[in-house]
Write a protein that binds this DNA or RNA. Sequence first.
DNA 1: CCTCCTTGCAACCGTTGAGTTGCACATCAC
DNA 2: GTGATGTGCAACTCAACGGTTGCAAGGAGG
Lengths: 101, 101
Amino acid sequence: MTDPQPLFAALADPTRRALFERLSTEGPASASRLAREMPVSRQAIAKHLAALDEAGLVERRTAGREVQYSARPTALTDVTAWVERVGSKWEERLQKLERNL
Amino acid sequence: MTDPQPLFAALADPTRRALFERLSTEGPASASRLAREMPVSRQAIAKHLAALDEAGLVERRTAGREVQYSARPTALTDVTAWVERVGSKWEERLQKLERNL
DNA sequence: CCTCCTTGCAACCGTTGAGTTGCACATCAC
DNA sequence: GTGATGTGCAACTCAACGGTTGCAAGGAGG
């Protein structure tokens, strides 16, 4: 389990989440294509894709002069893992508290 | 289901996550107490707690001159809900793709 | 070769965010 | 009342972030 920081940071931006959802539902696309679909410049998209890539949320595959980006939703398991971990500690504490009453 | 933006934004900061974990595992505490346990000023903690409060991750309860903050891990269900939603769309797309081959 | 399209890199700007310090105010204990 | 402690508000600094424009480079196709 790696550092979840890049993952949470990546998901914090709404444009990035939209980008990730777009790739998950509509399938792979290049940066230029995505820039045409969204109201932001191509360079902005590229930066977001770089962040998503670093977070492991996206996969880049170069094909000729284009770079196709595809979603890797399996990376989201790290998020749920974190939630599970905190949630379990919470329940654990509640049980200890209950036992002492 | 409200806007998940404050929630994701709140979880994006490592100090805030640590704060939330602390409250989940060790139980409620005041801002001053938390400031003594962590290497940040009391005001910084207060700001983080305000963000967590706005995100619904934390509950404030005034008692005399102190303000006790306690974790509300149920708010994390919104995160898992988002993950589930995106994940299901992903699987859906995969099935359609599979059927066309 | 020439052209079009996609990408990458760099510089720049405005805003946000995390953190600090300082001060005023309220509350508890003595 | 006095002093110590907890909180809140405001101003400030500094770095990071989202977004833009401009330009050079490199494949694809005529």
